[in-house]
Simulated assay, not measured.
Amino acid sequence: MISRERCVIALGQVLEVLIGGLMSGVLYSLVALGFVLIFKASGVFNFAQGAMVLLAGLALVRSLDLLIARGFSPWTAIILGIGFAAVIMAITAWLIQRFVVGPLVNQGALTLFMSTIGVTFVLEGAAQMIFGSDVYPLRLFPTDVWFLFESHFPGGVLVNKLDVWGAVIAGILVASLAIFFQQTKTGRALRAVADDHLAAQSVGIPISWIWFVVWLAAGLVALVAATVWGTKLGVQFSITFLALKALPVLIIGGLTSVPGAIVGGLIVGAGEKIAEVFLGSHIGGGIEYWFAYVLALAVLLVRPQGLFGERIIERI
């Protein structure tokens, strides 16, 4: 017969794994939000979002190092560094709109997708050529842990403070983007452009300006993601592969849903952690590297547009 103490310990372990997985999923969602934002507003699947996170992170960490070396206080350096990185992302957004996306208006989805793959390699090379290719530590958020529910579970439940910060930031981003899309004139124009570029142009919506705004917003989301992931992993080339980790999140949540990016991230994060801890010992390690893709495939078979995605109806 299983003792009550062993049940409590097991429950505490499950709770700790679940909370850790949910928090990790929120961090995936920060990257997925950039994909959703551009696809929702322009119909372009932006494969370059991971490279944009790398560029924003490098711009931020290198400017912080320079400012602190010049004698600026930490808070002043952080404010100026974030401002500098935001300017870099604004310039990047303008260049992408002016020389890549703008000339391809009204082209097919595959053409636009391939153009973002080219942007990915350009951004990766330019970022490392300008800011360097070393691993740069970034410490904007606390990385120590809390031990919660110590009165209920032996040793408590471990929760990383960085993950909590990521969850708070993701919540603020989702609320802000929802208000932007639903309540502002520019947000409604963005949705109109996504539905039909030609129709939007015919009613006087400036496509070039709208696409600059959406790429700028995606760049700022990439900057936010870089602050969290840079603190977690250090700012390094491997951050670009976060784009691949965000793909199952997008498939599960839906390419057109901002809340879906969060829910998809929570499902992926919790699912892969639970599978790794409780199934990994039975079927082999490394399950967290492929579990999300299997889960995404299952969702595709049942609901191709994702849990919160808009059903596409084509009339012929």
Rank of each mutant, 00 (worst) to 15 (best):
F180Y: 15
K232Q: 13
P248I: 02
G260Y: 04
L223H: 08
G204K: 06
A189F: 03
P259I: 07
P248N: 03
L244T: 02
I251T: 01
A226L: 09
L250H: 01
V235E: 05
V221T: 14
Q182V: 04
S257A: 09
F181N: 07
Q236I: 09
I205F: 13
G187L: 12
F180E: 05
I205T: 06
T231K: 06
A189T: 13
L250Q: 02
I172R: 07
I207K: 03
I239D: 01
A192I: 05
A199K: 13
V258H: 00
P206G: 13
L247D: 00
G234R: 12
H197K: 04
I207N: 08
D196G: 02
V224T: 14
S202I: 08
S238H: 15
L177P: 05
K185Q: 10
V224W: 04
R188S: 06
L242H: 01
F212A: 03
A225Q: 07
K245V: 02
L220S: 01
F180N: 07
A200S: 13
L177D: 07
L177I: 12
G171I: 02
L255P: 01
S202M: 15
A218H: 01
S176E: 05
S202N: 14
W215G: 01
F212H: 06
A194S: 15
Q182R: 15
A175V: 10
V221D: 10
W209S: 13
V174R: 03
G187A: 11
R191H: 04
A178K: 11
G219N: 04
S208R: 09
F237R: 13
Q182K: 13
V203T: 11
T256D: 13
F241N: 07
V214M: 09
Q182F: 00
A200P: 05
